[in-house]
Design a protein around this nucleic acid. Structure first.
Length: 478
RNA sequence: CGGGGUGUAGCGCAGCUGGUAGCGCGCUUGGUUUGGGACCAAGAUGCCGCAGGUUCGAAUCCUGUCACUCCGACCA
């Protein structure tokens, strides 16, 4: 069996039309459905289960770093939103407003939260009085609404699910530490859970969050060479504290403003999983978030003892992995294709021949490699295999990302790379917003981030030729 | 928000020189099958996106509108 054979004919090949491939995959794999609300999607059980696994993994990490979950209202009074100037300017164009309650017009309209900084700040102003109240390390899971012009399932919808961490600290140093700590949590999560390699760095002034002092980001690269901002962590300094009057008395009885951070990750990551790992047969899910890690397919299930054995295997495996049996009356071939399309990491086949030999067949989704495993060592081998699938998916994604990461030292080269072989382009920048804007205008590429720990590739700005201040990852982005 | 495309059965589509809707897949039932999307037979499923208009008569022509989608601008 050729490894690259495509069994699912309904999916448009990636190379033919990437966006169509993406749409086909999310629909065929039952991740989402369109709804009767413009720009909003229905996340179906299989897609939502991925999100729940993401939540579980992130929550564990947030808890270990001392954070507590809370819930804020979904409405923000206009006056509250107005309090921080940059923030409101950044979000005003895309907020939804509630103007009526029943038939009555509201005296003050309410916006549906596009993000909750203002609510957290308002609350913090009420509950923080002393240095003993700090730090406050809160996180909330919720949905937010942004009135987007064009939408695409998972990548950009008018309502999306996310978590937003909001913290308040006594000092600027602590806030900066927190900002970087959470960026590192995101990066670690992407690599160790989603098997997605990321570039960590700082956003330019132009790209930073509205109201932030500094924004840090992890950037990943999709199969088609388009960049995806995959998580951000912002240091607000004391800007919001001053706008919202969040003050505490320090240990020497002096009134001080707090220093704040916020950080978020969204359902967009499901889009990233699809576009980083998927292939022409459909989804390839990273084992640690796959709703079903092992699908058990009884072969010749009508034969005596097959279903019993398969059931027994499921029971045993369910102690170490998320297992599902497909004993529907579809043909085995159909089931193979179906679960492949749905990205299940391991397929376990068990039929009369296997039972006779005391073995099962394990087939991994990422490489389609087939191994025969003695039933006695099932649990150990499945766990091993899941880890091994994760590792090779990360390795493959890293190789792909590296192969699509280029360096440009003159503008013509930069332009050509963006046009002909989309991906990350590393190039120097003078720090001038005008150059950044010109690059975007001429090539369509935006600055993704200024990476940590990477040395200069030349000493001149790719755009104006003046002295370079920073290395920037550029790319077309979703 | 600008430019293009598409809305007909659950899905993919045909029908569009106006006469009251069809194909494939899927679905249901029965039987034969079953180690890479099985086969036969019999069924069920439609306010032709929505609203106006033209007409004796509209899926078909005209206008508007909504949604989806692709390409730009804005954004997680």
């Amino acid at each position: 069996m050729a490894q690259d054979k495509k069994f699912v004919e309904e999916i448009t090949p990636m190379n033919e039309d990437f966006t169509q491939w993406y749409t086909d995959v999310i629909k065929k794999a039952d991740l989402v459905d369109y709804s009767s609300v413009r720009g909003c999607m229905i996340i179906r059980p299989y897609g939502y289960a991925i999100w729940e696994n993401i939540q579980k993994e992130l929550n564990e990490r947030f808890r270990k770093t001392g954070h507590e979950n809370v819930y804020m209202p979904m409405f923000i009074p206009e006056s509250l939103l107005q309090k921080e100037k940059d923030h409101v300017e950044g979000f005003a164009p895309e907020v939804a407003w509630v103007t009526h309650g029943g038939a009555e017009e509201l005296t003050e309209k309410l916006c549906v939260r596009p993000t909750s900084e203002t609510l957290f700040c308002d609350h913090y102003a009420n509950i923080i009085h002393s240095y003993r109240d700090l730090p406050k390390l809160y996180n909330q899971w919720c949905s937010v609404v942004r009135w987007e012009k064009t939408t695409r399932p998972f990548l950009r919808t008018m309502e999306f699910l996310w978590q937003e961490g909001h913290t308040a600290h006594a000092t600027a140093e602590e806030a900066q530490e927190e900002t970087i700590r959470m960026l590192n949590v995101y990066a670690e999560f992407c690599q160790n859970v989603l098997a997605i390699p990321v570039v960590k760095g700082q956003k330019t002034e132009k790209e930073k969050f509205a109201g932030a002092k500094a924004t840090y980001t992890i950037e990943s690269l999709m199969h088609n060479g388009v960049a995806l901002q995959s998580g951000t962590s912002h240091n607000f300094g004391d800007g919001f504290a001053k706008a919202f009057n969040i003050q505490y008395t320090d240990s020497s009885n002096q009134l001080q403003y707090v220093h704040q951070t916020s950080w978020g990750m969204t359902t967009r990551m499901i889009g990233a999983i699809i576009m980083v790992h998927g292939d022409d047969s459909g989804l390839v899910l990273p084992p640690r978030v796959a709703p079903v890690q092992v699908v058990v397919i009884p072969v010749q299930q009508h034969k005596e003892g097959v279903l019993e054995k398969a059931g027994e295997i499921c029971t045993r495996l369910s102690r170490v992995a998320r297992v599902k049996m497909d004993d529907s009356d579809k043909s085995p071939g159909w089931k193979f294709s179906e679960h492949e399309m749905r990205g299940v990491p391991i397929r376990l086949e068990v039929g009369p021949k296997d039972i006779e030999k005391g073995q099962v067949v394990l087939v991994r989704r990422d490489t389609r490699e087939k191994v025969f495993v003695a039933i006695d060592e099932l649990e150990a081998r499945v766990c091993e295999l899941l880890d091994s699938i994760h590792d090779s998916m990360l390795e493959k994604a890293t190789t792909l990302r590296n192969n699509k990461t280029y360096t440009a030292i003159d503008f013509a080269e930069f332009e050509r790379i963006i046009r002909e072989t989309p991906g990350f382009v590393k190039a120097m920048w003078c720090g001038d917003r005008a150059c950044e804007e010109q690059i975007k205008e001429k090539t369509g590429a935006t600055s993704r981030c200024m990476p940590f720990d990477e040395g200069p590739v030349s000493d001149k700005c790719i755009c104006c030729g003046k002295e370079a201040k920073a290395l920037v990852y550029w790319g077309k982005a979703y």
